[in-house]
Design a protein around this nucleic acid. Structure first.
Lengths: 344, 344
DNA sequence: TCTGGCGATGTAACTGGTTACATAAGGTAT
DNA sequence: ATACCTTATGTAACCAGTTACATCGCCAGA
């Protein structure tokens, strides 16, 4: 590896030489301009401009011990579910002077551990992680490096790391309570993969418990519109009539609504559809989706504030549980309303 | 700021002292383990483990002159439009050993310039930028720092930076050709804000030119589902009957479809709807959306490969124009098909 | 005139690693 | 026995900044 090949720009000494001053003076021009004599300062500034000098981020970091870099380990960016959160995270973090490195894990703990290692290698001062299920290698990394990590999308005060999120069990319970209040008995539950995804796991478990007196069937499909379509097909094929379909995520509900419509089922006439998330598009499905609102943006903001504080002042934040509420729209109705077209 | 407050972990010298070897030996254990005597190596490794030593990213960077960090300056993450691209970028970049810092600009050149500066300050070795309209301060930064920058979402060989994207004018033309072939005369064009967004600007300009023999009306609203709803309302209120609605972005088309449905207009019976993007959800609207497919994931991947190569080997990539094609689904039909409900 | 204080600047030691070069020990061919 | 090579390790200079401390000139007060 030829050393000279790296076309490195001018450095502090180059500037000091060209300006006829010492490195300390140049450094002062950059950091405490007011203590430098005006003439000297202007001369140095001119040289900096002429030479196109730029401070080395690495040298800055080595001295301050700070990189102002945080990492977000999130399952995916491929739907609004996390991109809203990441977006508000990033916006909040810039206000605190941090930059955000995004790494996707696909809900795989091993991938997460590997990427976490890479993030430490590039010098992040803190992590956002998703949920509370992680690889031992990851915990090991945290222990050794002492890098702060904050879990989002989940609230669990007993977890050994601070969490900023919502009670996923409660989210499912809120939806179930609504379905029960409407008098639905036969419920199809549609959820994403459970391995590695503890948010979904918690929702499904809570649903199981909440609907144990009811007839219910569980279907697993990928968390996507297409997954929702596939699940709806399976419901119609395998179960026939159900009173309601409960999706663990709005994106799946979008597919369910589409497929029901295509199959000529009326929503909510023939079947109610309820979901969890309240994405921006959920207001505009047909019919508009009844869903449990999870404050994704707020979560990003709060998590960002807390991690920033933690890294900055070395005070470990407490966990935070965000409010949820049911947004009742047109996709749910009482059982036995006006049934129309047939379910064989 | 008390210097001792920073609880810095053990460093190379600490390890060397504890292991009774020189710093060079410890460094060799880390970088070329095979040249170190087995016993020595194991002893050093044990000390490293015991002390919980982790290499300082900053020191590594200062020596190699590399940070393995790239920055993406994108307008927003708040819809699938860019999150798909960023997602595939990130996935491609890890294969090349880079990490990705995401910064959102809200299509504001000044914000972009400011965040670009911050990214340089944390040490990125390259940028992804969106489109070809940027602030002078940004160009100035590029010139001075010589940091490679690659523009996405746009193809323009005459631009002074490499571009990886599609021909936005052509995208609009493809849609217009389709509308003309179907015999539509009265077209409402719905687009997002044009200031700072040259992708939209190019599409709108091309539409103007392509439909100059036709009756057409332009409506500007935010690029969101809600924006599409608002635009559709305005179209119905202000224009009355139109043959077709052309949206510059699928997310707006989602809103348009919703609002038309709500207002009792049949698509494509009363009005055809066509758009640009082909998001994953566009296959599952009702009716499924006819749209010009922009290869978002492919763009992310190709752009990532090229910027990685550029940074790695210092060879400036050429621009790349990605293929587009019309995806004909159910939301468009020939003019004068089966008109149903009334447009006053 | 001597001393004190202040403003402006320089010197050199740091930060935490890498690495060119030097050194020392041990083995082997001559 | 000598020269020579290999292997293993150490020393110290380097990367590009920051900063504690030293220095210098100058002016005011004693």
């Amino acid at each position: 590896m030829p050393r000279g090949s790296k076309k490195k720009g001018p450095n502090l000494r180059d500037v000091s030489r060209a300006a006829g001053v010492s490195v300390a003076t140049v450094s002062r021009v950059l950091n405490m301009p007011d203590v430098v004599n005006k003439d000297t300062r202007e001369r140095v500034e001119a040289v900096i401009e002429k030479l196109g000098f730029v401070r080395s981020a690495a040298a800055l970091a080595i001295n301050s011990g700070r990189t102002r870099l945080l990492g977000a380990l999130i399952p995916t960016l491929e739907s609004d579910i996390f991109s809203l959160t990441v977006s508000s995270m990033e916006q909040t973090l810039v206000e605190h002077g941090f930059s955000l490195i995004v790494a996707t894990t696909d809900d795989d703990p091993e991938t997460e551990a590997r990427k976490a290692k890479e993030l430490v290698d590039v010098g992040v001062e803190g992590f956002f992680i998703t949920g509370v299920t992680h690889d031992d290698a990851f915990y090991d990394l945290l222990r050794r490096t002492q890098v702060p990590a904050l879990a989002i999308s989940y609230f669990d005060e007993s977890y050994h790391l601070p969490t900023v999120g919502y009670d996923n069990r409660l989210a499912a319970e809120i939806a179930c309570v609504h379905l029960k209040a409407l008098g639905h008995q036969r419920v199809a539950v549609i959820h994403g993969p459970l391995t590695g995804n503890d948010r979904n796991r918690a929702r499904v478990d809570a649903t199981h418990a909440a609907l144990k007196e009811h007839s219910c069937w569980f279907f697993e499909e990928p968390i996507s519109v297409a997954g929702g379509v596939a699940a709806a097909k399976r419901v119609m094929d395998q179960i026939g009539r159900v009173d309601a379909i409960f999706c663990m995520s709005d994106v799946m509900a979008f597919g369910v609504l589409h497929e029901l419509h295509r199959a000529g089922k009326a929503v909510p006439g023939d079947v109610s559809v309820i979901s969890i998330h309240n994405l921006p598009a959920s207001e505009f499905t047909y019919p508009p989706l009844t869903t449990v609102d999870l404050p994704a943006r707020q979560m990003g903001q709060r998590a960002a504030e807390r991690l920033a504080q933690w890294v900055e002042n070395d005070v470990r934040p407490t966990s935070l549980c965000l409010d949820m509420h049911l947004v009742e729209r047109g996709s749910t109705a009482p059982f036995g309303g006006s049934k129309s077209s047939g379910w064989d």
